[in-house]
Design a binder for these strands. Structure first.
Length: 298
DNA sequence: CTTATGACCTGCAAGC
DNA sequence: TGCTTGCAGGTCATAA
């Protein structure tokens, strides 16, 4: 389910439910959900038993539980990952891992239909010395496998102008670049399409053909559309129930192009189209976002 | 450095 | 009623 707003909703909920609690046991129902690939799931229970979760942090779509042993438990939701706080012993649908606590309160359940998500117990690494993410009390520390992920627009240290300048130097096209988590993280297929519609830019425009000013605008649209989504999706987490069906909760009703193929564009009335792109799809309004003319190579 | 492709998975909807 | 096909929010490895 996750792009940045969904990941942040999960982080907030996980922080509220699980921060300050001490792990009693970890049961792995499907070993494909823990990394590194091939690790004995029993090692997770051994390493985590008695460890306390101090807080839950995030960069882009990567979430991690900070632990009082100095390490962390990294969580990526893949396409269909969900975190639940579960009261009874019954397994939730697609549950792959359960973590129980010494206070015998709600357990942490990780459910994932497609198994693209994973958890990984690992070390923290100091990336750039700048305060990291949502919890500046953990300066610059991110999980070892997250070091290549750039800051996201919800990060206090996010620098939109720097991102725009970086985009300008890329040899690739704009949507590809927006989806590249090393430049700016958190944007996925839905919000890339939404931001480009707002900016009236075709997904195949070369980055270098756009002005830095226009790129700043696009980055701003990414930020705005994800902020709007967060403000509407943030309510559904108390029950730890997240709509499996994408674009969390109510925001799916506000989408201008994603999944709207065949419907009229809210701005000009043109018919929204869906096109093949990078083995998935791109949505756009053919009138607001016309295909770029072939560039004349000079 | 870049792009393109496939791999990793399950399940749902649509078409025949 | 089945069967097949296509499609789904992400990331990573590999090859060219």
């Amino acid at each position: 389910m996750p792009e940045l707003p969904e990941a942040e909703v999960v982080r907030q909920g996980a922080h509220r439910w699980f921060a300050g609690r001490t792990i009693a046991d970890v049961v792995v129902h499907d070993r494909r959900i823990v990394r590194p690939v091939g690790i004995n799931p029993a090692h997770y229970a051994e390493a985590l038993r008695g460890v306390t979760i101090t807080s839950v942090s995030r960069r882009g779509k990567f979430i991690w539980f900070l632990l009082d042993d100095g390490c962390c438990l990294l969580l990526h939701l893949g396409m269909t990952g969900q975190v639940r706080a579960s009261e009874g012993p019954d397994l939730v649908r697609h549950e792959r891992l359960r973590c129980t606590f010494t206070d015998a309160g709600h357990a942490l359940c990780y459910a994932d239909q497609r198994l693209f998500g994973y958890l990984q117990y690992q070390e923290l690494v100091d990336v750039d010395g700048l305060p990291d993410g949502v919890f500046p009390d953990q300066p610059g520390l991110v999980p070892a496998s997250v070091t290549h992920i750039a800051r996201d627009p919800f990060d206090p240290a996010f620098d939109a102008l720097a991102v725009a300048r970086r985009l300008k130097t890329k040899k690739t096209t704009i949507k590809r670049a927006l989806l590249d988590q090393r430049i700016m993280s958190g944007v996925g297929n839905i919000y890339a399409d939404e931001a480009l519609w707002r900016a009236k830019v075709h997904y195949d425009r070369p980055c270098a053909a756009l002005t830095v000013k226009k790129l700043v605008e696009i980055v701003g649209h990414c930020t705005e559309v994800m902020t709007a989504s967060l403000s509407q999706g943030g309510t559904s987490f108390d029950a730890m129930y997240v709509n499996v069906n994408g674009a969390s909760g109510y925001f799916s009703r506000s989408l201008a192009v994603y999944g709207q193929q065949g419907k009229p564009c809210d701005r000009c009335g043109g018919t929204i189209v869906r096109e093949k792109f990078m083995n998935r799809s791109a949505h756009r309004c053919p009138r607001c976002q016309p295909r770029p003319r072939k560039r004349v190579v000079s």
